[in-house]
């Protein structure tokens, strides 16, 4: 059994799927000889050759666009966008093509591609390297937005994303790439998409989160447990389409909901989750829904980064306020 970090789990899933399915092609900037700037594709080119692990020219619209082309013609491209800040030139291809090729052609063509995008702050990176734009993509019908929060889920969800017949944006929380190791057997077993994962069961409050913020949220839950507060922590994992059922069921049990994300608060993932709960479980709520999120500001450069990021203290503050209401 392999003990791996989240990023090693990504590499393991890529290698597993490339070995199993020769249609899988890895492409992107610096993914070949260099093995990716985060090393997610380390060793893959040596193992699978320069045709299946391709260093591309520097152009994200091209990377996404050729992935659409390849996917429509029977390949399984897994493309890397180096950082979330550089995904924007690719948006035209993602929104106007990847997301709707199946709909436009009434299923004649479809687009089984994965776009891996390291995202989020907290690593003292330069400008445009720390944003959390996941909600932008979750708002676009026709694409899945998947975000792992641990090595095991990175492995299982990435396998599922590659095997899925439709496009997936796979946001990788770079802050936790190397934070924790887990035993992840390389069994090739995928985890289900479109479902939430309950990380911790509890009765007093439901705390919903995803990506790197699962760490702060679990820490907050631990700390509050010492004070006799029992938190149910849910990792959304697939932000779109959302598994509302798991969240609603939990809120029906706890009567309270806090949503935690690093992205700016307004129009973020939390807004949709709050709306869904308000629509379906309003009468189960004993207190108003709360969001613990980034401010509605530009992600600051790193000297102010820690002020922007919702840390454990802010998560605890949010949960406490909900309990005190």
């Amino acid at each position: 059994m392999a003990t791996v970090t989240l990023i090693e789990a990504v590499t393991m899933a890529l290698a597993h799927e490339m070995a199993r399915d020769e249609r899988v092609i890895v492409l992107g900037e610096d993914v070949g000889v260099n093995g990716g700037v985060f090393r997610a594709t380390a060793g893959l080119q040596q193992r699978f050759g320069a045709e299946r692990v391709q260093d591309t020219p520097l152009a994200e619209a091209m990377i996404a666009g050729v992935s659409v082309g390849m996917a429509a013609q029977g390949m399984r491209p897994v493309a890397e966008i180096q950082f979330e800040g550089f995904v924007f030139p690719a948006v035209d291809q993602i929104v106007n093509h990847a997301a709707r090729l199946r709909t436009r052609t009434r299923g004649r063509l479809h687009c089984p591609m994965v776009l891996r995008v390291p995202y989020g702050g907290g690593i003292h990176a330069p400008e445009h390297h720390s944003d959390s734009p996941e909600a932008m993509f979750a708002h676009m019908p026709g694409i899945r937005v998947v975000i792992p929060s641990s090595p095991a889920r990175a492995y299982g969800l990435l396998l599922a994303a590659i095997r899925d017949p439709d496009p997936v944006i796979f946001f990788e929380p770079k802050r936790i790439y190397r934070l924790q190791k887990q035993d992840v057997p390389d069994t090739g077993e995928a985890l289900p998409l479109d479902v939430c994962y309950t990380l911790r069961e509890g009765d007093d409050v439901t705390v919903v989160t995803w990506g790197a913020m699962t760490y702060e949220t679990l820490k907050a839950a631990d700390q509050l447990a010492g004070e006799g507060v029992s938190c149910e922590v849910i990792d959304v994992a697939t932000l779109s389409p959302l598994d509302a059922e798991t969240i609603i069921e939990s809120v029906e049990k706890t009567g309270r909901l806090v949503i935690v994300h690093e992205a700016p608060q307004s129009y973020g993932g939390g807004a949709e989750i709050a709306a869904v709960v308000a629509e379906h479980a309003l009468y189960s709520l004993r207190t108003p829904i709360r969001r613990v999120a980034g401010y509605d500001t530009i992600m600051p450069l790193f000297r102010l980064e820690s002020e922007y990021m919702p840390g454990v203290a802010r998560v605890i503050e949010g949960i406490r306020e909900t309990l005190e209401d």
């Binding site: 900037e29 610096d30 070949g32 260099n34 700037v37 260093d55 020219p57 520097l58």
Partner: peptide, 11 residues
């Protein structure tokens, strides 16, 4: 060079 990508692979 563009990080690890040499000019021959760029164009």
């Amino acid at each position: 060079w563009a990080i690890s990508v040499p000019l021959e692979l760029q164009t």
